[in-house]
Design a protein around this nucleic acid. Structure first.
Ligand code: FES
Ligand code: FES
Lengths: 151, 151
DNA sequence: ATAATTTACATCGAATCGATAGGAATTATG
DNA sequence: CATAATTCCTATCGATTCGATGTAAATTAT
């Protein structure tokens, strides 16, 4: 189970926008260079983030991106929804008939497990806000344990 | 976030083997018919389950599959490991240098979130055993609410 | 007018996924 | 021994997804 590159890139970009609060917006080009991420690809992601209302964009000469809402209000759940789509484990189309499990959805053993997964993931994702992550990042100034020098 | 068909098929097969404990092993053919699953594909999955030691197989004329361990001992974590691979959210190769986040792994904000996800998922998956699921399935004998008859 | 930028599409290559197929090895039964 | 039923191994296919690149148009300060 892996998270997509989209998710990580979006998160890194948002963290950068938050941790470097500037007067002028930050351009996609600068963002991609600072984070060493592919320029075009990152812009796609930023566009998605904009559609979702997480960032705001300014076009033209000194344009760029900035956060659209307060960083306490942006949770990893929001980022997830933008980059990974719906958090729906069901393979059966929920409302309709379960074609895979062969049973009707409300009689399916698996569905109760899926419900659990869905709730748990949702809660976990919502518990991480951009703000907390940025604070944690600051507290990491010094690495936990310096790796032993080799030789 | 979806679970693979492999996961569901494996789970359905294991549940069948558990809930229909028989003297003679159950063949892949029968299993696929009872569960309405594609024969060849299911056998691939059963082979994987066997390699993982969850089922035992008997070859030849009256051959087939049966559970290899007690159903209390089989958790969804085991099934997950077989069908979905490692539960490693990290995109950076953990031990090595983080190529995506650009930081060393023990200084990466994202890694702490990934650790959390990993632990949470692991615990949740381990909390579901084959036995519990089968009991739940029995308790579902009567549907919660009969869907309204149309017309 | 010009340069820098966002924005929208189109496409590409690789990987993954569900599924199918052929054939070899194994084993009870006659 | 011959046969039928079965597991098992491996190859492949078609579709989809994913990360990434490219092109070109719209927007805006200077
Ligand atoms: S029928 Fe919906 S999960 Fe089984
Ligand atoms: S460096 Fe490992 S998750 Fe960021």
């Amino acid at each position: 189970m892996k998270f997509s590159a989209r998710f990580e890139y979006a998160l890194l970009a948002l963290l950068y926008l938050k941790c470097e609060p500037d007067e002028s917006p930050i351009s996609g080009r600068v963002l991609s260079e600072k984070l060493s991420l592919p320029y075009r690809f990152l812009e796609q992601i930023l566009t998605d983030l904009k559609k979702a209302g997480l960032v705001r964009s300014v076009r033209g000469y000194h344009g760029g991106y900035r956060l659209a809402v307060e960083p306490e209000e942006i949770s990893l759940y929001d980022v997830f929804r933008v980059t990974e789509g719906k958090l729906e484990p069901y393979n059966c189309g929920e409302g309709e008939n379960g074609d895979r499990c062969g049973q009707s959805h409300n009689m399916c053993v698996i569905s109760s497990f899926y419900d659990d997964i869905k709730d748990t993931m949702t809660n976990l994702l919502k518990s991480y806000t951009l703000d907390k992550l940025c604070q944690a990042s600051r507290n990491m100034g010094a690495p936990k344990a310096a790796p032993a020098a080799n030789v």
